[in-house]
Design a protein around this nucleic acid. Structure first.
Length: 229
DNA sequence: CCCTGATTCGC
DNA sequence: GCGAATCAGG
């Protein structure tokens, strides 16, 4: 396979979207994960949250391949990845601590639902989105809709959906479904200023740190888990 | 072992 | 430019 513009675009979006090289390779098909990584680097993309990068010392690092018969010039190995763009996760230590953004327009408890008057743990993120507590995970609108149902929906269904190529800094990049599937698209809502997602999905992406003991399984993240087919 | 990304280097 | 082989780390 060759790197067409489309494949490169997909690679970029998924890479930036946080997908692993394996997932991207699997999605593109016909290429290995190494090919994806190699291509990504050649494209200039690089070093994102990689598990194998917790190391950063001034030590020259002892890296030598098995024997070096050729006196080839060793290229300095020092990528140095500094840019820390995203991850606006506030250091919220206490659960229901003081909301950093005292925006009066954000009601922490809109209406006393008749069901109960239990105090909900609600905090407000830096961008004004509501953080979810373990107890109030929203069931509706899960990021991963039904598995492949129909062969393909050429235009109609996808027409008004935000495709991979429609992403911009202005729209929510939260993936709906899985890449490659006919109905895969992105949220497309207006973003919460300063974040890659809309307010609602910020709430899903950035969970407040809550006290030990009352935890629930981690929320679904974009391109998070392995695909189940 | 599995996984991850990074890097090298022959093609 | 490409990507398998290899490395390094979790």
């Amino acid at each position: 396979m060759s790197w067409t513009d489309e494949r490169i675009a997909t690679l970029k979006k998924m890479w930036e979207g946080g997908s692993t090289a394996s997932q991207i390779a699997d999605e593109l098909g016909g290429v290995s994960r190494n090919a994806v990584i190699g291509k990504a680097h050649r494209l200039g993309l690089k070093s994102r949250p990689s598990p194998v990068k917790a190391n950063e010392k001034k030590k020259p690092a002892v890296k030598a391949k098995p024997a070096a018969p050729k006196p080839v010039a060793k290229k300095p190995v020092k990528p140095a990845a500094k840019p820390a763009p995203a991850a606006p996760i506030a250091p919220a230590k206490p659960a229901a601590a003081q909301p950093p953004a005292p925006d009066a327009s954000i009601p922490s408890q809109p209406l006393p639902n008749k069901s109960s008057d239990l105090p909900k743990i609600v905090s407000v993120g830096p961008g004004g989105f509501l953080r979810q507590g373990p107890g109030d995970q929203q069931a509706p609108i899960p990021p991963a809709p039904p598995r492949r149902l129909v062969p393909a929906k050429p235009s109609a269904e996808i027409a008004d959906k935000t495709s991979l190529l429609d992403l911009s800094d202005k729209v929510c990049r939260w993936p709906m479904g899985h890449p490659g599937e006919p109905d895969f698209h992105f949220c497309g809502e207006s973003v919460n200023p300063g974040f890659p997602y809309c307010v609602e999905h910020c709430g899903r992406a950035y969970q407040a740190q809550l006290p030990r003991g009352a935890r629930r399984p981690p929320p679904p993240l974009p391109f998070g888990g392995p695909r189940v087919r």
